[in-house]
Computed example of a mutant assay.
Amino acid sequence: RIAGTAAALFLLAFIVVASPLIEIIPLAALVGVMFMVVIGTFAWNSLMILRKVPLTDAFVIILVTAVTVAYDLATAVVVGVIVSALAYAWNNATRIGAKTYETIEGAKVYQVQGPLFFGSAEGFAELFDIKEDPALVVVDFADSRVVDQSALTAIEAMAAKYQDAGKELQLRHLSRDCHTLLAKAGQLMIDSDDDPDYQLAVDYQVRTGQLAGGH
């Protein structure tokens, strides 16, 4: 902290008071100083671990380095954050899945695995077999989370498809944040809470037509 503060104060003093002295320093000398700063601050050990880290991380390291050299550090940071966010969304989108079983009452239960958000909404829709499913289908979110509006739209659209087929779709094991999100969107037919430890599961019916994505 002291070093950073001192560097900032000295830089301010040079700019405000000693700018004529800076003009005397040859440009080549300033370039040399900047090269030494780069050599001292670059994380050289990152080159040694490129083969050990995930491919997306290695790509981000190389990309940020290249953008820094070609443009500037601020642009490189923005590009790195965007690419990392897209890579994270893509990885989570491919993790959506479901285990299925039938209850003694004849209902089919889909145990969703992985987060449900804009990146996995299409994969979520592909999990269901509306034509072959029984009259009652339960979607269990014990191992999943409803994250955003795209997830809400995907749930509503699936409920509408089952409704058109003369069948019913219910939701089970909603966490508190998922319940709040769905209740705020007006998609829950009943106002009740799952036990947070899932000692008592509530099967929620889905109200369609709330987000204009049902049909």
Results as ranks from 00 to 15, higher is better:
Arg1Phe: 12
Thr5Ala: 15
Ala7Ser: 07
Phe10Pro: 06
Phe10Trp: 01
Phe10His: 06
Ala13Gly: 14
Ala13Thr: 12
Phe14Asp: 14
Phe14Gln: 11
Ile15Gln: 08
Ala18Arg: 07
Ala18Gln: 09
Ser19Phe: 05
Pro20Asp: 08
Leu21Asn: 14
Leu27His: 15
Ala28Gly: 13
Ala29Ile: 15
Val31Pro: 13
Gly32Lys: 13
Val33Ile: 15
Val33Ser: 15
Met34Gly: 06
Phe35Arg: 10
Phe35Pro: 05
Ile39Thr: 14
Gly40Tyr: 10
Thr41Val: 12
Phe42Lys: 06
Trp44Phe: 07
Leu47Val: 10
Met48Tyr: 07
Leu50Gln: 09
Leu50Pro: 09
Lys52Arg: 15
Val53His: 10
Pro54Ala: 10
Leu55His: 09
Ala58Pro: 11
Phe59Lys: 13
Ile62Pro: 05
Ile62Thr: 10
Ile62Met: 10
Leu63His: 14
Thr65Asp: 03
Thr65Pro: 05
Ala66Phe: 14
Thr68His: 07
Thr68Ala: 11
Ala70Leu: 13
Leu73Asn: 01
Leu73Pro: 01
Leu73Phe: 02
Thr75Asn: 08
Val79Phe: 13
Gly80Asn: 12
Val81Asp: 14
Ile82Ser: 04
Ile82Pro: 03
Val83Ile: 11
Val83Leu: 15
Ala85Thr: 12
Leu86Lys: 01
Leu86Glu: 07
Ala87Lys: 10
Ala87Glu: 05
Tyr88Ile: 03
Ala93Gly: 01
Arg95His: 08
Gly97Met: 09
Ala98Lys: 04
Ala98Ser: 04
Thr100Pro: 02
Thr103Glu: 06
Gly106Lys: 13
Lys108Asp: 09
Tyr110Asp: 05
Gly114Phe: 01
Gly114Met: 08
Pro115Tyr: 02
Leu116Val: 05
Phe117Pro: 04
Phe118His: 09
Gly119Gln: 01
Ser120Thr: 00
Phe124Ile: 00
Phe124Glu: 00
Leu127Asn: 01
Leu127Met: 05
Phe128Tyr: 04
Glu132Lys: 11
Pro134Trp: 15
Val138His: 14
Asp140Arg: 02
Asp140Ile: 04
Phe141Tyr: 04
Phe141Ser: 00
Ala142Asp: 11
Ala142Asn: 12
Ser144Gln: 06
Val146Ala: 03
Val147Phe: 01
Ser150Tyr: 10
Ala151Lys: 11
Leu152Gln: 14
Leu152Val: 11
Ala154Thr: 03
Ile155Leu: 15
Ala157Trp: 08
Ala157His: 13
Met158Tyr: 06
Ala160His: 12
Tyr162Thr: 08
Asp164Gln: 09
Ala165Tyr: 11
Lys167Ala: 06
Gln170Val: 12
Arg172Phe: 06
His173Gly: 00
Leu174Ala: 02
Leu174Arg: 00
Leu174Tyr: 05
His179Glu: 14
His179Phe: 05
Thr180His: 07
Leu182Val: 09
Lys184Cys: 12
Gly186Tyr: 00
Gly186Ile: 00
Gln187Ser: 05
Gln187Ile: 05
Met189His: 08
Asp191Asn: 07
Asp191Cys: 00
Asp191Val: 03
Asp191Ser: 10
Ser192Gln: 08
Asp195Ala: 08
Pro196Ala: 00
Asp197His: 01
Tyr198Gln: 03
Tyr198Cys: 06
Tyr198Met: 07
Leu200Trp: 04
Val202Met: 08
Val202Pro: 01
Asp203His: 14
Gln205Val: 12
Val206Phe: 09
Val206Asn: 12
Thr208Ile: 03
Thr208Cys: 09
Gly209Pro: 00
Gln210Trp: 03
Leu211Tyr: 02
Leu211Val: 02
Ala212His: 02
Gly213Asp: 08
Gly214Cys: 11
